[in-house]
């Protein structure tokens, strides 16, 4: 029995228990206190160092996370800044467009005519005399030889700047009055003398008025206005020429003895270089209504009706005129 109890392992265990109890019981003694204190002293140093390392790592990680967040914010803000720059550009463009459209809204009405406003689509940048394309074609009622006008918002007048030469479904080609091949009969107000606008300066703001009678020399003066006239229209120009539209203002009269007529320089009513939208005047159906012919039709019908009634009243057989 004793052998079973007093094994090597049991003896060692009893030794450990005894030692442990002894050590715990003497925990208040100087030696135990010193061991504990020295342990605490040594390991607290390690703990402090590790604590510092942990703290430094933690703050380092926090800093990295913060830098990462700041960078994310920075990238987002940069994107926003690009967006805002784009918005600002769009806003500026819209503002300009608004100004232009507001100017068009201020156009005075032209009674009897439908105003077709067309943007200038392309210019020949090398030479303003070569003409330009407008963004309305025969679907909008545009036809060749039509007068093309623009609005001078400073002087508040419409001015003729050219004529339509070619029409496409949704666009039309316009040749300005300053083109050497462009011809337009005009009348000078108030003297009433006529002339032919043919060509002008490269920039389009000067026009040359030729074939003005030498008799007009004493009656013309600088500042007189040249306006369109329908007196000398051809049959093909029917309904396309409109009278009394401003073309230009006299700025110089040249009496060249080698020529058989006066040559007058005009300042265009509208500076063609600043034009972005043009206006075409299309006669309304009411305006194009031929009242005289209409009355004649009514009268003849009435005459025939009266004739048939008289025939009926006199007992004669009713027989329409012209029938055999």
């Amino acid at each position: 029995m004793l052998r079973v109890i007093l094994t090597r392992n049991n003896l060692i265990m009893i030794l450990y228990i005894a030692l442990s109890i002894l050590m715990v019981m003497s925990r208040e003694s100087g030696l135990s206190q010193r061991i504990t204190t020295s342990g605490v002293t040594v390991l607290s140093g390690v703990q402090r160092t590790m604590h510092w390392i942990f703290g430094a790592t933690e703050s380092g990680l926090q800093n990295v996370i913060e830098v990462w967040n700041i960078r994310k914010h920075y990238v987002k803000l940069q994107d926003k800044l690009i967006d805002y720059a784009e918005y600002e550009l769009q806003a500026q463009r819209l503002e300009k467009e608004n100004q232009r459209l507001r100017m068009l809204l201020d156009l005075p009405p032209a009674p009897g005519f439908r105003q077709v406003i067309a943007p200038i689509v392309t210019w020949d940048p090398a030479n303003l005399q070569h003409g330009f394309l407008i963004g309305k074609g025969y679907h909008a009622g545009v036809s060749p030889k039509m007068l093309v006008l623009a609005y001078n918002s400073e002087r508040r007048i419409f001015g003729v700047i050219g004529r339509v030469v070619e029409v496409f479904p949704y666009s039309a080609k316009v040749v300005p009055l300053s083109h050497p091949d462009s011809f337009l009969t005009v009348k000078i107000e108030p003297s009433g003398f006529e002339g032919l606008v043919n060509g002008g300066s490269w920039s389009g703001d000067r026009l040359t008025l030729r074939y003005v009678s030498r008799n007009a020399l004493s009656l013309l003066s600088v500042g007189d206005m040249a306006v369109t006239t329908t007196v000398r229209k051809n049959e093909s120009d029917e309904g396309l020429l409109i009278s009394d539209l401003y073309v230009g203002e006299i700025i110089n009269i040249v009496d060249n003895p080698t020529l058989d007529a006066l040559e007058v320089s005009l300042k265009s009513a509208v500076n063609i270089g600043r034009v972005e939208h043009v206006i075409l005047l299309i006669a309304d159906d009411v305006a194009g209504y031929d009242a005289d012919n209409h009355l004649e039709d009514i009268d003849s019908t009435k005459v025939y009706t009266d004739f048939y009634q008289l025939q009926e009243q006199s007992g004669l057989p009713v027989k329409p005129l012209g029938s055999s």
Partner: peptide
């Protein structure tokens, strides 16, 4: 206290 955990772990 020195020996306390030693006793438990033992």
């Amino acid at each position: 206290p020195l020996g306390f955990t030693a006793l438990v772990k033992m």
